[in-house]
Design a protein around this nucleic acid. Sequence first.
DNA 1: GTCGCAGTTTGCTCTGGCGCAAACAGCACG
DNA 2: CGTGCTGTTTGCGCCAGAGCAAACTGCGAC
Lengths: 232, 232
Amino acid sequence: MTLDRSLIAGLPAFAGLDGPGLDAALARARSSRFPKDSEVFSQGTEAASFFLLLAGHIRVVRTSPEGHQVIARYINEGELFGIAVAMGRNTYPASAVAAVDCVVLTWPNAAWPDLQASVPSFATNAYQTIGSRLQETQAQVMEMSTQQVEQRIAHALLRIVSQSGRKTEQGIEIDFPITRQDIAEMTGTTLHTVSRLLSAWEDEGLVKGGRQRVVVTNPHGLMVVAENRRRK
Amino acid sequence: MTLDRSLIAGLPAFAGLDGPGLDAALARARSSRFPKDSEVFSQGTEAASFFLLLAGHIRVVRTSPEGHQVIARYINEGELFGIAVAMGRNTYPASAVAAVDCVVLTWPNAAWPDLQASVPSFATNAYQTIGSRLQETQAQVMEMSTQQVEQRIAHALLRIVSQSGRKTEQGIEIDFPITRQDIAEMTGTTLHTVSRLLSAWEDEGLVKGGRQRVVVTNPHGLMVVAENRRRK
DNA sequence: GTCGCAGTTTGCTCTGGCGCAAACAGCACG
DNA sequence: CGTGCTGTTTGCGCCAGAGCAAACTGCGAC
C-alpha cells in the first residue's frame, strides 16, 4: 500500500521536506489502524519499530513489577512515540495503548539511520521530543515533591486540556475518554481523591464531569487553584 | 593549555577513538576546576556549552518558582552533563553545583555538530545518556506514586551507593558529602523524616551515619527494606 | 581553646489524603 | 427492557509523614 505524502506534510518531524523527500520517508513506513484499547507496543518487549501517531490519542503506561500502573503521558496527533531506537534502548520502557481508535505510521528500526541522515529535521525533532519529555518528567517529579494533590490534579487537567482540548459551548473538553482512575494514575493519587476534587470543583463551577468525560468550564479559575499553594 | 589525551581515553563517550582522534576532540575543549559548592551552570541561563566531568561529583538541582529545591541527580566521573544542545534546548533546565572540588571539560555548543560528525560514539553516548536519564526520571515518578517514603529513601541510598560508593572496612560509603536535607530533596520528603529513618536503620545495623556522611553497612538488609512494600 | 554555625536528632501535634466499604448511575449487551 | 458491568460518588476512620519546636553536636574559623 502506498501512502500519500499529504499524510505527513506539515508535521514538524518532516518540516522543510519537499514532495519527493516526503515520498522517500514514507517508502519504508507502514500505516495501520489500532482499535481503542489495543496495544501498539508492550513494555519490556523488544523494540523493533518506532511510530508516529497520525490520528487518535495514545496513552503511555508504565507498570511496576507489583502491578501498579502509572500513566507517563498522552501522545497527540503528529507526535513521534516508541522511539527507543533514538535512545539506544532495545526494549520499550512502557506500553502504548490506543485511548481511542488510532491511525499509526510504523517504521522498522532499520530505517532510523537512513531517515536521520536524509531528513535532518527528523532527527532534530526526535531528539527535541525526547528532551522535552525529560524536561516534563522532571517537572512532574518537582510537582510531586512540592505540591499538594489538589494543585497536581489541577495542573494535570490544564496540561491535558491545553494539548488535547476541544472547544465546546460549555468550555474546553478533553477529547478522548479519560476516567478518574486515569487522572489518578497521572498524578500519583487515588480515584477517590480525584472524584472528590472534581465534584468539589463542579460545585464551584470550574469543571463539569461525566462518565469518562471532563470539561473545563473555567480554565482561569482552575489555574488559580493550580497556583494557590498551601505549603511554603 | 593543551590537554592530554589520556584524560578522556577509556571514557565511553570516546570509545574506539585513536590517539589523534582524541586530540582532535580535545582541541576545542577547555579544562577547568570548580571548587566545592560553586555553580558550573545555572538554571534558566543561556546554554552556551556542554560539559564532561573528569573528577569529582556534581549535584543537578532544580528550583521551583516558589524556591523549592529538588535534586534531579548526581553526576559521576566520566559522564556528560549540561547537554542542553543535544535536546535542542537553549537554556539549562537545572543548575549544576560541585558537590566536592571538581575538574570539568567544557566545550562550546558550536563544537557539538563537529564532534557528533567526527566521533560517532560521542553522539551515541550522549543520546543514550539522555535516554537513560529519561528512563530513570520516569522510574522516579513511579516510585513516588507507588512507594512509601521508607522504600524511596532506601532505593535512593542504594542507587547512590552503587554509582558513587566507596568501599571501606565498615561498608560502602557515599564518597561525597551529602546531608539529610539532600537526601530529602532527592526523595521528595523532609530532612526530619530522613533523619528519623536513618536513625532507625542505624539501630538495626543497616547503615551508619555521620555529619554529611552515610555508610551502608548492610546493603542486602537495605534492599530488603527497599522491596518490602506495604501498599498492595 | 572556644565560639559559632551548619547539620542533626528527637518529641509532639495535626492533617491530607488513603484504604475500605457501600451505594449509585450510565452504557452495552443480550 | 432488564441485566450486568464498568465507572463514579460519598461517608468514615485512620495513619504516615509533614510541620513546628527545641536541644544537641561535630567542625571550621579565629
